[in-house]
Design a binder for these strands. Structure first.
Lengths: 254, 254
DNA sequence: GGTGGCGCAATTGCATGCAATCGACTATAC
DNA sequence: GTATAGTCGATTGCATGCAATTGCGCCACC
């Protein structure tokens, strides 16, 4: 009796949705994604404490899942985890920030040279569409521009067609986003939409040398514009602004 | 009463060992390190199942810790984690293997240019010492040569003086080690000790161009030598050879 | 008034237990 | 004999509970 329903679901899954079940994410991944977004959108500021209990309550899950998410983010460098003293949003040092940008420059150089080898009209359309979103967000002066700018680079990595490359560009891009939120002036959203524009154009022309050069100077420019002085960390209290992120996870939305 | 002993230890720690307590690793990290070593030393072969229960029993801890370690290794790409179906040592595809080596080449290029800027006689001595270990291991034809070769590159990254760079070189180096164990002939331990020799010499001369060129050709050579045909995965049964690794963790050794 | 030790509250570290899920096996129908 | 449905054992997913650790405030003592 207890098994009939389950069996149906089970066999249904196995037969028709084999791939979907592989794609199904664990809940801890949903939570770490939510926290990642919150960090990149400056809802959680560097230095904020992230106690397992409160987070668990907010997300409607137990500390087990929260801890898994935090541990993951710590491995990515977005969160600092100190033994027996809890987690907090990472506060990368200026030197660390420079190192990350340097590494990013090096890696995205590879992205360009790969993406240009497999460029197609469809991919160009995708890039244009993303750029349009960036421009729109800038006009509305929405605070998600850092995230969108980061996602432009991630989209490039996706189009490069190497999952490995994508994974590292994502991770390093996120870390750069975090450092920007710590060091950059809040509304220096001139983070190079124009430069994204030029990169797309070079890719469209198939001009690899130019595209690589542009990407290199784009990234060093972003770093130079941003990494000047360190802003002091925001309030250490822990905000309710996290609620919308939690709601999405609780409702099982992406 | 219950608190006197604890307090003593506590205050002792706090006062005299502040740094040590920060350095103290969580047990899950010890476990993931142990598993990582086991994978790189071909004690755990690609495709082997890694059930939480058996591992927990062997390491003398609960499934909670094992799972954390596995999750970490999965994030690093050494382990594949399929929903509700457990973990196994990753079996990177040939294409993935190529991508990783390509990325590695790109990153280690940066390592060279940084390490050469901060080269000192002491660092050269360290490099020489490591090379000596490699040669020794080769003569004894010990099976840890893949690990040692990997650690040569990691040592370089350490000497580059960027924790961020070190972290990624480590991770990608480990993944390359894993792919080598899947694709390379077991005793092709000619994995370029001679080439390591030449790289050190170039670094000693301060010849950045040459060193970068050597590193690039070294890595592509390693990849080309190795990534030819795929060996079929070893037995899926799960070996007791893990015991020495487990013992170290249980005894609290590094 | 400053220094050093102790207890307490808050928080994490980890083990355990129960329910859900998966793959394999068996039985039944055609 | 093949194909489909149902069951079972093994294994993971997640919540909960208890013990250990940490930092802070309090008090004594110099």
């Amino acid at each position: 009796m207890q098994s009939t329903i389950q069996s149906c679901i089970h066999h249904y899954c196995c037969r028709d949705l084999m791939k979907a079940s592989d794609k199904a994410k664990h809940r801890n991944e949903l939570i770490s994604s939510a926290l990642r977004s919150a960090i990149l959108e400056r809802v959680l500021l560097p230095g904020m404490k992230l106690p397992e209990d409160s987070l668990g309550e907010r997300f409607g899950v137990s500390r087990t899942l929260i801890r898994q998410a935090l541990e993951r983010l710590a491995a990515e460098g977005l969160v600092e985890l100190r033994r027996n003293r809890g987690a907090m949003v990472a506060k990368p040092s200026l030197e660390e920030a420079r190192d990350i940008f340097e590494l990013r420059t090096q890696i995205e150089d590879l992205v360009i040279s790969r993406v240009i080898k497999e460029m197609t009209p469809e991919k160009l359309v995708e890039l244009e569409a993303h750029l349009a979103k960036e421009i729109e967000a800038e006009h509305a002066s929405e605070p998600i521009s850092i995230r969108l700018a980061t996602e432009f680079h991630i989209l490039l990595a996706k189009l490069a067609g190497s999952p490995v490359l994508l994974r590292y560009v994502e991770e390093i891009g996120y870390r750069c986003g975090l450092t920007l939120s710590l060091y950059a002036r809040p509304h220096s959203t001139d983070c190079g939409i124009q430069e994204h524009r030029q990169i797309i154009d070079s890719l469209a022309r198939g001009d690899e040398e130019k595209a690589r050069e542009l990407m290199r100077s784009h990234l060093t420019a972003v770093a130079d514009r941003a990494l000047i002085t360190r802003k002091e960390a925001g309030p250490l209290v822990y905000l309710d602004a996290l609620e919308p992120y939690a709601r999405k996870v609780r409702d099982g939305q992406e």
